[in-house]
Design a protein around this nucleic acid. Sequence first.
DNA 1: GCCCGACCTGACCAATCGGTCAAGATAAAT
DNA 2: ATTTATCTTGACCGATTGGTCAGGTCGGGC
Lengths: 210, 210
Amino acid sequence: MNEAARPLKRTEIRQQNEALILKAAEKVFAEAGFGGATMQLIADMAGLPKANLHYYFATKEDLYRRVVQNIFEIWLEAAEAMDVADDPVTGIGAYIEAKMAISRAHPDGSKVWAYEVMHGAPVIQDYLETTLRDWTNDRIARIEGWIAAGKIKPIAPRHLLYMIWATTQHYADFGHQIATLNRGPLSDEDWRRATAAVKEILLRGIGALD
Amino acid sequence: MNEAARPLKRTEIRQQNEALILKAAEKVFAEAGFGGATMQLIADMAGLPKANLHYYFATKEDLYRRVVQNIFEIWLEAAEAMDVADDPVTGIGAYIEAKMAISRAHPDGSKVWAYEVMHGAPVIQDYLETTLRDWTNDRIARIEGWIAAGKIKPIAPRHLLYMIWATTQHYADFGHQIATLNRGPLSDEDWRRATAAVKEILLRGIGALD
DNA sequence: GCCCGACCTGACCAATCGGTCAAGATAAAT
DNA sequence: ATTTATCTTGACCGATTGGTCAGGTCGGGC
């Protein structure tokens, strides 16, 4: 992969191999789930001997945990997009766009997250109860403010958030089904149209348009 | 389980045991995925010896296939709810209500379906390309009719369907996350409110309300 | 040039997996 | 009552799994 055989510094070796393993693990966990994934498969995909994986990650659970945590961080960064503006059209619109972009850029990560939650969130239960719950309550308060200011209709803020999560992540988690119905992977234009459709229906649905 | 030890007819034995195994399998496959599920675990949950499972279902794949097909049939029956009326509010509203009811009644089935699609639909790929694709195209034509008649705004019908699937199934597939944020399982009233919120936002989003 | 600690890996292991099978138990046809 | 086909099950098997380990390689401080 690298040009020639340049000598690598110790820290570079560690960073490079951990990243390589995490990337391969994300793909394999997304394709096969935790139980269906094997360390041998991840090793083959990373181009490393299996024993080398156990040098960097003690157990399969440790590796899985790191993959899930990485996704959660990407999730949280995008969540800040909702605070860019004071009006709901710009704020919620930017959040939907950010989440759609993540669904396209990190479909495997989204699937591993879905897998983890679907199976009772054994690894990230504490994150759900702390970070995610706090973030959700803050956004609910923000949406209630928009309702009180008459900027949107008095819909249920909590279920609006669930609908945003559901619709945007659907394009990653169910990407195979969508691609099958579309007779092929979504193009740039397809993604633009999908994002526009989701934004339009949700924003009009809460009375922020027209 | 049965009162006393009443003698069972041959056909009864077969039906009863197959149903018992399928029910246990649905739960285990939903909780652990295909790879994470074991025949021993399913056997224990069904209260039967493992060898007995292989008498009724030759392989683990056969058992999994039957579980996925069962869910697909439930899915299709509910899809007919969309054709109950000529106006979009009643038709789409009934479809959303039917799908929300399924999410509540068959959360494990929904999860197994999600698992199957997330992993490339190796078992039900042909259903996606035939039955589901035909059904989707028919409903798109129907929605386009409503648009042409001026009953709803000119939204993208395909993405409206995706949004309905995503939001309704989210309450099953991500039920654990929702329950955690809700500090407990959803009550009857919670489900009623969730269904109303989804219906209201989606129907207003396509311009069928107000 | 030497040495130490980080890095690498083929070979190996106990545990568990899906699946098999032969022998016994039971319901129904004769 | 005997036969027959269905149902039941403990014991077993080869294959694969996550994980270990001893012995090697190699970068970098001295």
